[in-house]
Design a protein around this nucleic acid. Sequence first.
DNA 1: CATATTAACTACCGCTCGGTAGTAAAATGT
DNA 2: ACATTTTACTACCGAGCGGTAGTTAATATG
Lengths: 203, 203
Amino acid sequence: MSGANMRSRGRPRLFDEDAVLDELTALFWRKGYSQTSMADLVDASGVHKSSLYSTFGTKEELFAKILQRYLAARMGMFSKLVEQAGPGIDGIHAFLEMLRGDLVSGTGQWGCLLVNSSSELSGTAPGFEDFGVAFRKELRERLRALIRQAEPEGTASTRVTDQRTDLFMTFMLGLNLTVRGGADENEIGRVIDAMQATVDTWR
Amino acid sequence: MSGANMRSRGRPRLFDEDAVLDELTALFWRKGYSQTSMADLVDASGVHKSSLYSTFGTKEELFAKILQRYLAARMGMFSKLVEQAGPGIDGIHAFLEMLRGDLVSGTGQWGCLLVNSSSELSGTAPGFEDFGVAFRKELRERLRALIRQAEPEGTASTRVTDQRTDLFMTFMLGLNLTVRGGADENEIGRVIDAMQATVDTWR
DNA sequence: CATATTAACTACCGCTCGGTAGTAAAATGT
DNA sequence: ACATTTTACTACCGAGCGGTAGTTAATATG
């Protein structure tokens, strides 16, 4: 029986692995992969370099783990947002408003780690491109569900749903870029308003 | 009189400055700023390192010059595209089709150098953020002209024009990201079709 | 207490990075 | 011819990079 409370054999960790991964994620998120050095990660986490290597492997391996962890968390967040948004066109409106709230504060202004990384490393990718593809695919599924449930039964064709999903998705990517590019709250607000107006024509 | 044909005093350059800048631009465009080393630039251009430094200054200064040059070229291109697109909703459709042609071939799949750089360096920017802001502002002006001339006189309010412009602009940013993220021709086509359908509702 | 195991911590390695000094070569000016 | 100016080219520098070996400390097991 290897229960949850079974302590391992040697010296116990002095740091919480999850908490450290959160800090490292934040650093990569804000500065990008290339501009974040191992020394930066050591400083930010307080964990010695060798411990980072023995725990998470090389910088590439660490980053892969972080991306995968981030992907799961991000998708969980979007699923919850879609759920909270509720059905109907009003649901999409609510979804966009929740997005607005996220983008103007905290980590929101750094864009999406997966999108950023996919863009940063696509020209020289060791193998991170798959994460970006997976992200777009999963996000698209959730957005499609949000949009699908906003259409009165029988009225919408699959084609229309798909087109709206593609537009909405591309809009979200562009919004991420706008935010990361340093847009202020007004500009973000304007852009979201523009999408709200478009969504209104879907009634 | 310092005419165009007045040769300078010392040893003449063995390389064409503009041609070299084009090559360096392509490299930064594809690989990004951080992932492009001076050695890479030397290899790609065939110009010795010292000559690059004496001609263009440090890596940061060189990159600033490249961004500025790229900005001018890019804006010229967009101005021409808008002009070629012509008036009316059909003009916007034509514009999108020209975009489609550009994105599936050559440098198009690397996205936009300014957008990429703005995203890559925003978390650690030495001072490149201004280029991204200038780019978004200038691009927005041109897109607004395209959209403005597609509206029948007297029918459209300033507010509607601005909203459509913001949506279109954000769409283009997202499209860039989609392309750079490694989307294939089908996915790009779908996304553009989605925007075409939205533009159709503007009639 | 002895041993095995795991982690913390220090010190270091080879390499690549951006950047520069110093010299040889090719042009113009007098 | 000679000096001046500008560039081409070689060789090199210190710093920071990602990554690792080796030692000390803390826990579990026998």
